[in-house]
C-alpha cells in the first residue's frame, strides 16, 4: 500500500504542475505590477498642456488622492477610455493627466474632442516623466495617495467595469 502511494507521487506532481501552467495560460502577460508601487511619485518639473509658462512639480500630488492618467493624442485606446475617465471625474475623483510624447496642438485638440476630465495636464513631450514612471505604452493610470505615494497601477484600457469594480474601491481605500 505504501509503495502504491509512492508510485502516485509523480502523477500528483504532474497534476500540480499542469494546474499551475494552466492558470498561467489565462493570465495577461502585459499587466504587471508597477515597480513604483509603495514608492513616491517620481520628481518632475514640467509645464502644463494649457500653459507653457507653468512649472509644475510633484507637490501637485500632495494633499489628496489623485488618479494620474498617462495619455496621448496618438493613442487610440486613450480615446476609448475617455468616457470612463469622465465618469470617474463625475464621481469626484481628482484626475491629473500626463500628455505623453505629444504636441500641444494635438493634445489640446484631443481634449476638445473627447472632453477634459483632468484638473490639469502635465505636458511631457519627450516622455521623461513617462520614463521615470516606467510607462511602456499609453494609457497607464496610477493612483497616488495624499502623501504622494503610488498605491495602485492600471496598465492599459480602463473598462466601465474597472471603474466600479477596481478603481473606485482603490480610491476609497486610500482616501
Amino acid at each position: 500500500m505504501k509503495r502504491r502511494l509512492l508510485l502516485a507521487i509523480p502523477l500528483l506532481l504532474f497534476i500540480a504542475l499542469a494546474a499551475l501552467l494552466y492558470r498561467g495560460l489565462s493570465l495577461d502577460p502585459s499587466s504587471r505590477d508597477s515597480a513604483l508601487l509603495a514608492r513616491d511619485f517620481p520628481a518632475f518639473s514640467l509645464s502644463s498642456l494649457e500653459d507653457p509658462e507653468a512649472r509644475l512639480d510633484a507637490s501637485l500630488l500632495k494633499g489628496q488622492v489623485t488618479l494620474v492618467n498617462v495619455w496621448g493624442e496618438w493613442c487610440p485606446t486613450c480615446k476609448q477610455e475617455m468616457p470612463q475617465l469622465l465618469d470617474l471625474a463625475a464621481r469626484d475623483v481628482r484626475l491629473i493627466g500626463v500628455d505623453y510624447k505629444d504636441s500641444r496642438e494635438k493634445g489640446r485638440a484631443f481634449l476638445e474632442e473627447f472632453g477634459n476630465p483632468f484638473e490639469v495636464n502635465l505636458f511631457d513631450p519627450e516622455g521623461e516623466l513617462g520614463f521615470d514612471l516606467g510607462v511602456y505604452g499609453a494609457p497607464e493610470t496610477f493612483l497616488v495617495d495624499a502623501d504622494g505615494v503610488i498605491r495602485y497601477h492600471h496598465t492599459g484600457y480602463i473598462t466601465p467595469e474597472d471603474v466600479t469594480e477596481t478603481i473606485m474601491p482603490e480610491v476609497r481605500k486610500w482616501q
Binding site: 504587471r32 515597480a35 516606467g134
Partner: peptide
C-alpha cells in the same frame, strides 16, 4: 532600469 520597469 529595475527601479522604473521592475525585475521584468
Amino acid at each position: 532600469m529595475v527601479a522604473r520597469f521592475g525585475d521584468y
